[in-house]
Amino acid sequence: MTPVTVTGTTQEAGAPFGAAPPAGDSSAAIVTRGLTKRFRGGQVAVDALDLTVPRGSVYGFLGPNGSGKTTTIRMLLGLITPTAGTYDVLGLPPARALPRVGALVEGPAFYPYLSGEANLMRFDAADPSARRATARRRIADALDRVGLSAAAGKRYRNYSLGMRQRLAIAAALLGPRELLILDEPTNGLDPQGTREVRALVKEIAADGTTVFVSSHLLAEIEQMCTHAAIMRSGRLVVQGTIGSLSAGRVPLIRVETPDVAEAARVLGELGLSGVQAGAGELTAELGGQRPEMINAALVGQEVAVRGLAVVRPSLEDVFVGLTGEGFDVDG
């Protein structure tokens, strides 16, 4: 499978990310070239990965479980040595860039016998560029940002899963970060927690921080990212802006009605193509039409409209279109 790079129509994607960018000042937050990891035993977890994450983007890193996302993130953080390939983080070798990178890797991990606050103090102490003098204030800010201030003194052992996840995000926000790497940040969270994390990511991105977020949930990425890359079995399938990824796919209009035949006739008259009738509903390609006009036309022809929706093409469709496979079947 050849990776497809889609150059998008929006502002960020047009910039060319050629060879190695100049150190320290690069338009890309992460650049990998031919990044490969072969584990002992021969298993190739990541295979010749060429990623370009533009600065200021919210970059969705997608793939089914086991597609090499976490291994890639571990390489970016210097936890795993690549077998081959080169990579830059913030235009620097990863070891030098790390103080400016906040990370959440494979779920939260803290000392159960320490309070949330003491845990953050511990990880802050591990960062050689963090100052002890400002630690208390920065920790309080980070806890406040994830809504954990009230539980700051509680032992981590007694935190709920959602609180643990939020503490991990707080740990990633201890200093001013230029890049945030979040590996499956909504794993194990309830819908409310998921929404909170999504809102937080948007807020962080609004500060100008680049956010690199991995997930196996396509819908989640679609909602919060400006860019996305899709991995499959260690290889990059596609990367680009969200808009460009689904550019080839047209939005559909879906009408719920008991008068399917009549509705189909009206849609046909309006010039919509690809009209497909089902039981109690029908879909058609929206084309350039405005949905409210379609609705008015239907009602004008006395079609009982029970529901009307515009269905935008999802990343899942893109993925299926590129690989011919469902997203979650791959182990």
Binding site: L77, A95, A103, A109, P128
Partner: peptide, 18 residues
Amino acid sequence: GGGTLRYLLAAPAGRGRL
């Protein structure tokens, strides 16, 4: 075992220093 090693190293504590 507790998983905290990856966060210490990502902080980055530095392997030799740690």
